[in-house]
Design a protein around this nucleic acid. Structure first.
Lengths: 236, 236
DNA sequence: GAAATATTGTTTCTTTGTGAAACAATAGTA
DNA sequence: TACTATTGTTTCACAAAGAAACAATATTTC
């Protein structure tokens, strides 16, 4: 599982910010390299014979088991000193792998992607080098290696700016959800409370929701409708 | 001037969409390789010892002579077959350079940037490989090599989406301009007419314009105010 | 089984913002 | 001096957004 130099494009990687929503909080997937105490975003390399997008999809599907993932590229990080060969070296040595020279120790420019996935239906798997992968609350992340904290910041910024246009939130929810669920997704991403009545009006006005029978819920109050989002032509 | 393999990151390039505004129309800079009839965006490669952003700035300043350029990265294009080695080979051979193998014939992933510059104060210079560089009306571009037309499309899309937030338009205007000038920039970028009264109200409301004395103009009508945009702390 | 409670779905009212038109001002022209 | 073209501003109508109030209902409590 040591990466063969000839198979991959050198000096170029991708890093992914994988968002999930637990029902209350926005979370992202973080890898941990136990022996080094290093936290990192899931990332990977691009084969010489594959599309950039395909490389990212491949990596995410390996880690999450999901094939149909909402993926968006948001920025490419190219500062000269963003990558630190010493950190990579420690990670490999923490795994018992000692290599004097390797293309992986070079300087890397990295393309940032974010993904939105349904938290409930995923059981993430660590990759070959990492010992664990897990969900972390977005508002209390550990310190990540290299510039990964900045990458996360930029991902959220992009997500916020495009939340309305792209109805991204749906990718974070299960098939059926209540209006309150949807509102909580918006609130956790935007970081501010939304007015309940206006939020409902706005969402229904978009004409993308399908209303179903009422939820037979356990709450001691009026049961909310369940919604799903309409299948569109563009969906495959 | 043949690029040395050891100096540059392989398989990675940048392409730049350089916007200018002639006073009426939105234009972009296009290179032409005469002997091949090929049109292309100005682009370049990244040295192993420089920031990605610096590489792009270096390239633009070589071509435009301007150092302080508004630059924004908008997308990285990574489709496997986006670059075509045959086209590159023809360009080199058109220059009388015949090389059997060269890293420049490899597959390239390219980072797209756009720049906004003041049309009047720039006299663009072609690079080593191209015979000419010139302004083309944005709405009547020639067919460009590889995926460069798509790159331009995506640049405009990004520019439109961020026009309000970032007040980008100012980078396209001379130091002093009228409200009508500013409105024409907006209209040419957005591709639709703006209401005159509301546009003025909106722009003044942003509190970023400084109003100066009236222009002593030649028009047979009330002379318009001249404006400049306020210097901000963040400017260096 | 009736009242109480919590939350949902909707409506109403107010405020704010936007689009279009009208009005007033003025530099040059006839 | 009147006329014309365009600018700067105001007004009006309408739509959107924010806040509060009202009505409906599933469960709990008495």
């Amino acid at each position: 599982m040591v990466f063969q130099a000839d198979d991959y494009i050198p000096n170029l990687s991708y890093d992914s910010v994988i968002f999930g929503f637990s029902g209350e909080k926005l979370k992202i997937l973080i890898l941990e390299y136990h022996n080094t105490g290093t936290f990192a975003l899931p990332g990977g390399f691009i084969r010489k014979d594959e599309d950039l997008d395909s490389a990212v999809k491949r990596g995410l599907s390996e880690r999450t088991g999901i094939d149909q993932i909402y993926l968006e590229q948001f920025h490419t990080f190219g500062a000269l000193h963003r990558s630190n060969p010493e950190v990579m070296r420690r990670i490999f040595e923490g795994q018992g792998i000692v290599m004097k020279d390797h293309w992986i120790y070079d300087r890397f420019i990295s393309v940032g992607y974010y993904a939105l996935i349904n938290y409930d239906t995923v059981s993430p798997k660590p990759d070959a080098l990492s010992d664990s992968i897990g969900w972390y609350n977005f508002d209390s992340l550990p310190e990540l290696m290299q510039d990964h904290n900045q990458i996360v910041e930029k991902a959220l910024e992009h997500l916020r700016n495009h939340l309305d246009q792209k109805l991204l939130s749906f990718n974070l929810l299960p098939e059926f959800f209540t209006m309150k669920d949807l509102q909580q997704v918006y609130e956790s991403i935007l970081g501010e409370n939304q007015n309940r009545a206006n939020f409902q009006r706005k969402m229904l006005g978009l004409e993308i929701l399908e209303r179903h029978e009422k939820l037979y819920s356990g709450g001691s109050h009026k049961a909310p409708f369940l919604y799903s989002f309409r299948k569109r032509k563009s969906d495959s």
